[in-house]
Design a protein around this nucleic acid. Structure first.
Lengths: 234, 234
DNA sequence: CCACGGCATTGACCTTGGTCAACCGGCCCT
DNA sequence: AGGGCCGGTTGACCAAGGTCAATGCCGTGG
């Protein structure tokens, strides 16, 4: 495993590795594997035995569940710099992946053996704390998702999603570039593509947004924020 | 804090404390507080600063979110022997509770200071591992909940809930004693009480169950399992 | 003993979002 | 250039479950 020295700083973007001691990280880097996925490639499937977890370098990977009828619900869309499937290590004897993972765009990843990482956890408190931080962030995200699935309607979820895509510090009329096909976003928000389309059309009619393909211009941020009961400004 | 010696074995019922060294556990027990709640009492509220987490000794506590309109969605109903709000410690600086907590029945709890526990984590790998196990269990539970909220209908969710209530090893015609008012169960399943009532009525008509107040007799387990696509037996 | 309040049930009606189908436009491939 | 495919859009229709209101059923307390 000959690996460029940038690997360490690359990994440190993830909570999990942010504070890990150099030598521990170096050891991990020695043992990890490169993975390349084309769009549509499957990384792992629900209920397969989980022997490694992943760090996403480039591209995008969706984590999703399938209903017996084949309907898909995306739980999370992983972005570069994030780790996933790290929690499975602790699901008792022989953990299994709780979701499917598939590349939404061409992706490069590092795969890390759970065994190796478990050993490291025993030596490194920073690693444990990093993992705990990762898990609690994800936990919180899931609770928020449950809230918006049950307490909010489709329009609310879509608007909240759009607002999330606007970088924090933008003051000008914000532009949102959708990074995945609309069907993927629909599945993430647990609505049908047709419904997504209709909601966008309605927002367009009300002149709250402009839609050009997968580029969206938000014409009236405050009106959108009001729609989701967010206080003015921020 | 004069505490009975049973406290240790009581706490060990929770994943979090199961494998913790005796002296560490003893130290925790020294510092913790007793809490008594009557039905309807609030333990903490969403977005309050979180300074402690809890171990439920007796009774039941619901964790829930409220919509701006006041609708309630129960995320989880805590049972005796479980810990909750342990994850908040790692949500960066000054974590805040992501949910509300309120007693559904008269309850006794132990409250543990997060600071004290954090110090302990630095010394005890067992504590870290216990916490990691707790969090990944909860994570998995939430993913399952998202799946059934999005990919399954109300009848499915209720039937799955009923089947979960049947103790593992029962072979006779199983009896389910609902441990909370039906309205609470409805909120947990993200349906209205009226809908819950109607679904039970429908299952009764089909002679799959009998309902007597909050006692339910399952007349045909296999038919219920089929409804939720579970394989026969198990 | 009756009155009240909370929970549950039932009925009538309505709304949201799903389903099915047609259609459009861009892109790739031959 | 033509054909087919994929993603997205639009329309017509449908159904699951929510809403609103009336009613029943206790259990508690005056």
């Amino acid at each position: 495993m000959n690996r460029p020295p940038e690997a360490a700083s690359e990994l440190r973007r993830a909570y999990l590795f942010a504070d890990m001691a150099d030598q521990h990280l170096a050891a991990l880097i020695q043992g990890m594997h490169d993975i390349h996925l084309n769009t549509g490639d499957t990384l792992f499937r629900h209920s397969q035995p989980a022997e490694r977890f992943f760090f996403l370098r480039d591209g995008m990977v969706k984590l999703f569940r399938l209903s017996p009828e084949g309907d898909e619900k995306i739980i999370e869309i992983m972005q570069p710099g994030q780790t996933f499937a790290e929690a499975v290590m602790f699901m008792g004897t022989q953990g299994r992946y709780p979701v499917n993972a598939e590349a939404v765009s061409e992706s490069r990843l590092y795969a890390i053996e759970q065994k190796a990482f478990l050993n490291l956890l025993r030596e490194s408190h920073e690693a444990s704390f990093g993992l705990l931080a990762s898990l609690s962030r994800r936990l919180h995200m899931l609770v928020n998702q449950i809230e918006s699935l049950t307490l909010q309607n489709a329009t609310y979820r879509l608007v909240a999603y759009l607002l999330e895509q606007i970088p924090r510090d933008v003051k000008t009329s914000p532009e949102v570039q959708l990074t995945t096909p609309k069907g993927v976003i629909a599945s993430r928000l647990a609505i049908q593509p047709e419904t997504l389309s209709r909601i966008l059309a309605k927002l367009r009619q009300r002149e709250l947004i402009e839609v050009h393909g997968n580029h969206i211009t938000v014409r009236n941020v405050q009106a959108l924020r009001d729609l989701v009961h967010l206080p003015p400004q921020d």
